[in-house]
Amino acid sequence: MIVPFGHVLMLAGMLFLLGVFCTLTRRNLVMIILGVEVMLNAAAIAFVGAALHWQSLEGQAFVLFIMAIAATEVSVGLALIVYAYRRSGSFDPSSCNLLR
């Protein structure tokens, strides 16, 4: 393996933190979902690296399923958000304040 596993993890970790940052700071429902997508991708990178590290295919399988999950997430999430946008006319997460 050319790239050491540690470096892959580092990359994944940074990407993960970026995703978290996006999720936590952007006041937009779509961007939150995007941030989560980035986090998922970070996990996928880590899986790929680990799969290489351990020389097993299970990590790769994980990546495939993560992609599927991400797709589901976007479809369900966007459906919800679009629905919400139609009702409230905003993507602002702070408009979700009915329940307390």
Binding site: V20, T23, L24, T25, R27, I32, P93, S94, C96, N97, L99, R100
Partner: peptide, 13 residues
């Protein structure tokens, strides 16, 4: 508990 979603996520994280 009734804060905005992102604050909650922040706390979790």
């Amino acid at each position: 508990q009734s804060g905005m979603i992102q604050y909650r996520l922040l706390v979790s994280f």
